[in-house]
């Protein structure tokens, strides 16, 4: 029975794992092909000859991806730090602090999620133009400190899965709101925080539309924008493009792995209830 269960689990993991990995394998395979091999049809999965030079050629071609990498690290690093602070505080306020019109304010936060980004693009662009922020990182950095509606909503939902007794117990011990958050609630929300960190990282690392609009110099823009420079109107060097795409994806995979360690059950709620 136990063996059967393992067979079943691994069977499912392997089957679906493979199906979900196909796009990545495709990227990997293309990144090692010569340009002429990428032109063949039906596509070949095994590169031959192996064009390892796509990696250095793509990374250090007409554009210096070291600079884009540095820029992406700065912009994404700020975003992760900002969201972990601001979204947590705002969500905490919505979940636990009794303020008048809380429901109404929360509805407004949710409403901002429901406007498609394509619409606010131009008004936002004009706003930042008036601030003189275009061609700087500010339009990508400052708004991160005001929280992200999606994360506020998500964290609020997670706060609400934590029993109110936790707060009450701490409050009896004389903790203020901030200390309750820091010492009691956050340690119980590691998976949710890791989720916010991962999403913020991935969202900003891969964000294309905003850096596209606000940054366009060879020295201030990001990896996602740089990657697209391989796309010509009539001709795309897919092999070098994929090589750079794989390199850009590596940090995402690493971050995912790294933050995954917080996805470990066994949170010590046992002492409080039972």
């Amino acid at each position: 029975m136990r063996v059967l269960r393992y067979v079943l689990i691994y069977g499912l993991l392997l089957t679906f794992g493979f199906i979900y990995t196909v796009p990545f394998l495709w990227m990997l395979s293309t990144s090692f092909k010569t340009l002429s091999q990428t032109l063949r049809f039906p596509p070949e999965w095994i590169p031959g000859p192996w064009a390892f030079e796509n990696y250095p050629n793509g990374w250090m071609g007409a554009f210096d991806f070291n600079i884009f990498f540095r820029n992406s690290v700065a912009i994404t690093g700020n975003a992760v730090l900002a969201q972990m602070t601001s979204s947590v505080l705002i969500a905490y306020a919505f979940a636990r602090i009794r303020v008048p019109e809380r429901g109404f304010l929360f509805a407004i936060v949710l409403a901002t999620m429901m406007i498609p980004p394509q619409v606010t693009l131009i008004p936002q662009y004009i706003l930042f133009t008036k601030f003189g922020w275009v061609e700087t990182w500010l339009p990508l950095m400052v708004p991160q400190w005001t929280g992200w509606p999606l994360f506020v909503f998500m964290l609020r939902q997670f706060f609400r899965t934590l029993p109110a007794d936790l707060d009450d117990a701490a409050r009896i011990d004389g903790c203020g709101s901030f200390r309750i958050l820091w010492h009691v609630l956050l340690p119980n929300m590691k998976p949710a925080l890791a989720t916010v960190a991962i999403f913020t990282f991935v969202g900003n690392w891969n964000d294309f539309l905003h850096p596209l609009l606000y940054l366009s110099r060879d020295d201030n823009t990001t990896l996602a924008v740089g990657l697209n420079m391989f796309r010509g109107q009539y001709r795309t060097q897919f092999n070098e493009m994929m090589a750079v795409a794989v390199l850009i994806l590596l940090p995402v995979i690493l971050i995912f792995f790294f933050f995954q360690q917080y996805f470990v059950r066994g949170i010590a709620l046992t002492g409080i209830k039972g």
């Binding site: 554009f63 420079m229 391989f230 109107q233 795309t236 060097q237 070098e240």
Partner: peptide
């Protein structure tokens, strides 16, 4: 609006 291979 240059593609990468025409930028140099």
């Amino acid at each position: 609006s240059w593609p990468e291979h025409r930028y140099q």
